[in-house]
Amino acid sequence: MDPGKEGLPRKPRFSAQLHVGKWLSPFFFTCAVYFLLWIPDDQPSWVGALVKCLPVLSLVVFLRAADAGRGYSARLQGALLCSAVGDACLVWPEAFLHGVAAFAAAHLLYLWAFGLTPLQPGLLLLVIPAALPYYSLLLWHLPPDLVLPLTAYSLALATMLWRGLARGGSAGWGALLFTLSDAMLTWNAFAQPLPHARLVVMTTYYSAQVLISLSVSQSPKLKPN
């Protein structure tokens, strides 16, 4: 077999991997900055909010490099921008509900991106039994004024998880990690403090966002260099 011909199919794939790595490097750099600075939670500031948002905003730049499938990529970018707004709002406790609303909008955009085909209702039958016991326990610890907003948010999150799992690939793993991150965040905030909660929450959150963003490469191709 001709080694030149044998190597031809590998070159575009290798080039695409280099391209993805180049555009993802700001994400990993800004994640490292966030964890190295580790700005305290009890000192809300715009600097802290910006450092927290930069990894998610860098994923918007990554998605801007996507070529085909612009509709899917645009919805993911919108979800990431809403997530960044939510990240900033959660820095200030008094803006908690604004953050919940921003993340709910992000989940709706992810849901729109993932679509309803294939439907796979069987996955929904797995999501509901897992979500109901957790939320039933959490409900006892929520302040009365947060019950309705967080119930609506939980429905949006559970639906996003269902559709992410139905899409599969990195979108499914990202949706699952996003759900776990939110579950730990709310349990730590309202029910019982968890050890190393912030580290685990932010690690799973950033991992979720990058995995969902990488799902853009499963259908469309990235621009060549």
Rank of each mutant, 00 (worst) to 15 (best):
A65C: 13
S15G: 15
S73R: 11
P44A: 11
L63C: 09
E94R: 11
E6M: 14
L165D: 03
L123H: 10
P55E: 01
G164T: 03
V216E: 00
W173I: 04
A66G: 13
L125F: 13
R167M: 09
W173E: 05
Q43N: 13
Y205R: 01
D67L: 15
W38D: 13
L59I: 06
V91S: 10
M160T: 03
L142W: 05
V85D: 01
K22I: 14
T159G: 12
W112Q: 06
A84K: 01
C89Q: 04
F27C: 02
L194I: 06
L199N: 07
A156V: 08
L59T: 03
T30Y: 04
A175L: 03
L76G: 02
I39M: 14
N188G: 06
L148Q: 02
A152T: 00
E94K: 11
L37A: 09
G169V: 01
F29P: 10
P193V: 10
T117P: 07
L180I: 13
L139W: 04
L81A: 02
L90M: 08
L214Y: 05
L146E: 03
P121I: 04
R75F: 08
D41C: 09
P9C: 14
A171G: 02
E94W: 09
V210R: 06
L8R: 12
L176Q: 05
T30C: 07
G174E: 00
A197N: 09
L81M: 04
F28D: 08
T204N: 06
L177Q: 03
Y206F: 08
A106M: 03
T117L: 10
A152D: 00
L194K: 04
R75D: 09
L63E: 07
L146T: 04
A101H: 01
V201Q: 05
F190G: 04
A175T: 02
A79N: 07
Q218L: 13
G7M: 14
P144V: 11
V85A: 06
K52N: 06
Y205E: 00
A79G: 09
G174T: 00
F96K: 06
L214I: 07
W187H: 10
Y134W: 12
M160S: 02
W162H: 08
S58Q: 12
P195S: 02
N188T: 07
L90D: 08
L165I: 07
E94M: 11
L155P: 00
T203Y: 08
L123K: 09
S83W: 08
E6P: 13
G174A: 01
L50I: 11
R198D: 10
L177Y: 03
P12H: 12
W162V: 08
L142A: 08
K52A: 06
T30A: 07
L138N: 02
L142M: 11
Q192M: 15
L177C: 05
P143M: 07
R10L: 15
K11N: 15
A84Y: 04
V91E: 09
V147E: 00
L109F: 06
G86Y: 05
P118R: 09
P143F: 05
T117C: 11
F103G: 01
H196C: 14
D41Y: 08
A65E: 13
G48S: 13
